[in-house]
Structures are given as structure tokens and as C-alpha cells.
């Protein structure tokens, strides 16, 4: 990082005293100023044009109080009858979605890594596909799959899977590119076949990164699968949507509590497993 370039005059005996050091070159300073300026400009412009109704804002404390009063006490009796099954379904959607995404993302990740697939054209094409997968939100994926497979958990699972492909594929590709060439060359020299290279050369090197990112994605997917039901793709979101549409806020509270508990438990599980296997 040689960004601490000094602007100095040529070193002559007399000038050494009044040399002036600056941390950044003029170009760097200009670029930084441009960033600051555009951030402030974007902020001011957005603030000026965004449509916010002030009456609604002043009303907010009363509304929140009303909301909390309606939520309290939570309707716990609602949990066994219709929340529990939906919660289990959510977990299945998240887990199965992660499994499917890994199955689909591994080949893509291999093709995206330049040292495994030494063709820049293929790498770029695959990376483009991975970017597309990531930029489409899981809710949009869910809407697309609902249009194809009809509402239900199938659409939700595929939505989770397709949203995760970009994430897993990208990070796996990068982990592969960081692999040491030494063991690979040694295997090649011993006449190892292409699958052997992958299994015995690359896999041991990317294994920790692979499991870490699968666990991380599963954790994210548990959160994401909780909202898929809002658009009809199965899971706990359906229960949430129903309760909200009927203004049964005490039931909404139960659903939110259930999501809260599951998310916390998922995070604890991920931390524990990560500590065990990595």
C-alpha cells in the first residue's frame, strides 16, 4: 500500500528544512473528495425528494404503543395448532435449500476458479451467472418459482437454493483460487487423474472454507426462509401473513417469538458446529 506518497522537493541542502510532506497525492485527494461529495449529494437529494408524510411520523409513538398493547399477551395457544408445523417446514426449506444450492454451486464454483478451469471466458460467464443469482432477492426467486410450481414449500426451497448458489459458488470459487499450487503439481507429477486432483488436491485445501460458508449460508437461509411465506412460498411466513391480514396481533407476536427463538438457536448451533469441525 504505497498511498503515503510524499510531495517533496528535490533534496538540496538548503531545502531540507521546509520540505512539505503530504499523505496523499493530489489524485487520491481528488478521488476522496469526489466520494465524499457524491455521498453528501446523494444523501441531500434523497432526503429532499423522498416522500415521507410527517403526520405519520408524529403518530408513530402512539401507533407503536397500540401495536404492543395488541401484541400483549401473546396467544401461546396458537403455537401448537398452527405455528409449530410451519416452523418445522421453514427449517426444512432452509436446510434442503442449502443442500440443493451446494449441489448446484460446486460445479459452478469449480468453473469460476481460474486455476481449476483455465479459461477466462468460461470464468467470466459463470461469474456473471453467479452475480445474477445473488442480485435477485430470495423473495423474487420465490415469486418466480410460485409462478412455475404453484404456491408452497417447493417454490420456497428452490428460491432459497437459487438465491444461495451465487453466494456459495462465488466464495467457493475464491477459496479454490487461493489453494496452494504445490500439492496440485505434486499430484499431477504422480500422474493423478482429473477427479483425483479435485478430491485429493483441492478438496482438502478448501474443506474448512467450504464448511464455514455452508454453515454461514444455512444460518442466513433460516432467516430468509422465515419471510418467504409472505409471498406464499411456504413456511412460517404463511402463518405470519395470515395472522397479520386478520389483525390478530397476539398471534403475530407468537410467530415473531418463534422466529426469534429459532434464529438464536440456529446461530448457537452454527457457532458450536464451527468450533467443533474447524
Amino acid at each position: 500500500m504505497d498511498r503515503r506518497r510524499a510531495v517533496a522537493e528535490p533534496l538540496t541542502p538548503g531545502s531540507a528544512v521546509r520540505r512539505e510532506w503530504q499523505r496523499f497525492t493530489p489524485g487520491q485527494r481528488l478521488a476522496r473528495f469526489a466520494v465524499y461529495f457524491s455521498v453528501v449529494a446523494a444523501f441531500v437529494l434523497s432526503l429532499g425528494t423522498v416522500e415521507v408524510i410527517p403526520e405519520f411520523l408524529w403518530d408513530a409513538p402512539a401507533q407503536v404503543q397500540d401495536l404492543l398493547l395488541r401484541m400483549w399477551p401473546p396467544d401461546y395457544a396458537h403455537y401448537p395448532s398452527s405455528v409449530h408445523d410451519a416452523m418445522v417446514e421453514t427449517l426444512h426449506i432452509a436446510t434442503l435449500g442449502t443442500v440443493i444450492s451446494v449441489l448446484l454451486a460446486v460445479p459452478l464454483g469449480l468453473l469460476a476458479a481460474n486455476n481449476v478451469m483455465p479459461s477466462r471466458t468460461v470464468n467470466t460467464l459463470i461469474k456473471l451467472a453467479l452475480v445474477t443469482s445473488r442480485s435477485v432477492n430470495s423473495l423474487v426467486w420465490a415469486l418466480l418459482f410460485i409462478a412455475v410450481f404453484g404456491p408452497g414449500a417447493l417454490a420456497g426451497t428452490l428460491a432459497i437454493a437459487f438465491r444461495s448458489i451465487g453466494f456459495v459458488g462465488k466464495l467457493l470459487g475464491e477459496a479454490l483460487e487461493e489453494a496452494q499450487p504445490g500439492p496440485i503439481e505434486a499430484l499431477k507429477a504422480s500422474g493423478a487423474s482429473w477427479p483425483s486432483l479435485l478430491v485429493f488436491g483441492y478438496w482438502p485445501q478448501v474443506k474448512p472454507a467450504f464448511w464455514a460458508l455452508v454453515l454461514l449460508r444455512w444460518d442466513i437461509n433460516v432467516r430468509e426462509s422465515a419471510v418467504l411465506g409472505l409471498v406464499g412460498a411456504g413456511g412460517i411466513g404463511v402463518a405470519l401473513n395470515t395472522a397479520m391480514n386478520l389483525f390478530q396481533w397476539d398471534r403475530v407476536a407468537v410467530v415473531l417469538l418463534a422466529i426469534f427463538v429459532v434464529v438464536i438457536v440456529a446461530e448457537v448451533v452454527v457457532t458450536w458446529v464451527r468450533g467443533r469441525i474447524l
Binding site: I53, F56, D59, A60, Q63, V227, L240, L256, F260, V263
Partner: peptide, 17 residues
């Protein structure tokens, strides 16, 4: 971090319209 932004948005839609 617990809740998905969309769920948080639901609560805020109720609070601030």
C-alpha cells in the same frame, strides 16, 4: 440482526404507515 429486514419493515409499516 435477528429479524429479516422485510419482517422489520412490517412492524414499521404499522408504526409509521
Amino acid at each position: 440482526r435477528t429479524f429479516h429486514p422485510v419482517i422489520v419493515a412490517i412492524v414499521f409499516v404499522k408504526a409509521v404507515g
